[in-house]
């Protein structure tokens, strides 16, 4: 029962990432794409953790945390670049 609910949650999360990819492709400008990328990370992080539990591997939590840190740095760097050029 709990596993079934987890699978359902993972499926919903996957559908969410698909929607985010739609915005990533459509744009229109780089800023909108950056937002889409940010949302993609925010969905992927908890889904990674959920999959880690589903697969019974704790290492996925560290992967999710590092992924979050890298994405935060990426988005902030992009914003700073747009703001005043590197």
């Amino acid at each position: 029962m709990a596993n079934l609910l987890l699978e359902l949650a993972l499926a919903i999360g996957a559908a969410g990432t698909l929607l985010a990819v739609v915005r990533l492709v459509k744009g229109p400008r780089a800023a909108s794409r950056a937002v889409a990328l940010d949302v993609l990370t925010l969905i992927t992080m908890p889904m990674m953790a959920a999959y880690g539990l589903y697969a019974g591997r704790q290492i996925y939590l560290d992967v999710a945390l590092v992924y979050g840190i890298l994405s935060f740095l990426g988005v902030t760097a992009l914003a700073r670049y747009a703001d005043r050029g590197v």
Binding site: M1, A2, N3, L5, L6, L8, A9, L10, I12, G13, A15, G16, T17, L18, L19, A20, V22, R23, R29, A31, S32, V35, A36, V39, L42, I43, P46, M47, A50
Partner: peptide
């Protein structure tokens, strides 16, 4: 386990709504 899984499910629904929001909303 079931209580936790329900929380995860609700969380996933909010994540989906966030993604739906960036597709539907008109500006950045």
């Amino acid at each position: 386990h079931i209580v936790g899984a329900v929380f995860v499910l609700i969380g996933a629904l909010f994540l989906f709504l966030g993604a739906l929001g960036i597709v539907r909303m008109p500006d950045l």
